[in-house]
Amino acid sequence: MSNGIVTIQDVEKEYSLGATVVKALRGVSLTVEKGEFISIAGPSGSGKTTLLNLIGCVDTATRGDVVVAGKNTAQLSERQLTDLRLNTIGFIFQSFNLVSVLSVYQNVEFPLLLQDKLSSGERKKRVESLLEQVGLNTHMKHRPNELSGGQRQRVAIARALVTDPLIVLADEPTANLDSQTGQAILDLMKSLNQQKGTTFIFSTHDHKVMRYANAVVRLADGKILGRESPELAVAHAVGMDAPAAPVQAAS
């Protein structure tokens, strides 16, 4: 076994949808090293989100081992999984998932309150510094619905990074943003990755997004097709996606 920050070994994941069993992942193995900026790519239904869920400890594998930050998630209780998420992983969601009744500042502070480790002064410092990094230190008192999509996602990034996690998981972080804003978000993620050495794992089916990664894991039908450079992956993806394009245009 490798000593990566995330180690996945022969993982299978099955869901039952009524009477039928859907195999979302069929024998996946993957190692992610600390500080990587890695993209999980593949079309819808390829198992991207399932894989992300397993890494994010919000779900457990049917078979195989998922080891996150040295802990085998299959052996952890619900409570321990929650603690692991709180202290090790930051989440960035496709639809931002901010708490609408809380201000920008309070949204970012939320995980720190859950951790309950820092004094309020330390919390304030941390939250303000992160909001400055994402360029929202002037919007601290705003409510999420007063912000644009890109601003919201930046709040979500600040929230994901505020606990100084080992891994940040981002599920299609730019899917709900226009391409310009999406690029800005990715630039931000990338710079945070470089500054702090935080491992970023993000899923996408957009080849423009893949280019930002230093490695791309391509998934199809629950299997890893390969772990390759972004250029190669994009080439593959364009090839894969090309036939689908006219169909999408026609619909």
């Binding site: 619900e78 998420r85 989440f91 998932n97 939320f110 995980p111 859950l114």
Partner: peptide, 16 residues
């Protein structure tokens, strides 16, 4: 549901 799910994902225990 989504907000509560998010809170759980971020690390909120059931008791909270």
């Amino acid at each position: 549901t989504q907000v509560i799910g998010t809170m759980r994902a971020i690390g909120a225990q059931r008791g909270l």
